[in-house]
Write a protein that binds this DNA or RNA. Structure first.
Lengths: 121, 121
DNA sequence: TTCCTTATTAGTAATGATTACTATTATCAT
DNA sequence: ATGATAATAGTAATCATTACTAATAAGGAA
């Protein structure tokens, strides 16, 4: 695997923000530094970065995937009001699948609802 | 909301199987009873059934959404070997978001890994 | 440093799930 | 039975993601 300025820029961007971005949002952001970067390059590098466990993906009920440079185990909360995605700590117990002899490599916890601000309205 | 044979057939199908199906799989299955049902009809009814809390949707890292007629709270395990989706009980504690004043309307727990059978290989 | 191999890229086309649109049909309250 | 209108079939459009290919650039060897 070669170190390219494209991959570096994508990873730097995700690491610099404690937020969650779609491929298109990442594309737009990185284009400010590398104006002719291709969207395909963004997708390919995101896939590689996930494989290398440098970033994680967040699947919500949205039609697109979000990417997160913060890789420590945590849960996500998707606000159905403002659409914001919040991080929450994840309390890990002995999971049911591992008790059943399944190998758990990853787990995703996503809450849906209203954040404190939207809940008040 | 009117009761149509299309919506009834979709709901009956999902309820009759303890499994998870994509919109296309549901379309194919229901077409055996209603040969000229439209895929758009399937999607529209699935959306309505979710709104009425008659079914739930399962978002995985797959590009398509799966639908589940079993609505009691439970977790899903996606096997990266055989691609099967398994159900697991979900132990609910006081969630972190609710402690923070967020209104949790839904929560999704998805594990990724290898099921017992694939793990042995 | 220069050269060579080959991974990576830019640009574009293709795919595939989902949504939108519209004329027609069927549900159900009256 | 009938009329208002919600729902449908069929098709076209959208949009995220993937595939493809000729050109480029990373990095090891000379």
């Amino acid at each position: 695997m070669r170190v390219t300025k494209q991959r570096t820029a994508i990873l730097d961007f995700l690491r610099s923000k404690r937020h969650h971005y779609s491929a298109t949002q990442i594309y737009d952001a990185v284009r400010e530094k590398i104006p002719n970067i291709s969207l395909g390059t963004v997708y390919r590098n995101l896939a590689q970065l996930i494989e290398d466990k440098e970033i994680i993906s967040v699947e919500t009920s949205d039609k697109c995937v979000y990417y997160d440079g913060f890789t420590a185990d945590h849960a996500h909360f998707v606000c159905e009001g403002c659409k914001e995605i919040f991080d929450f700590p994840l309390i890990l117990e002995d999971s049911e699948p591992s008790k059943a002899g399944f190998l758990v490599e990853n787990q995703r916890v996503v809450y849906y609802g209203l954040c404190a601000k939207c809940n008040k309205k």
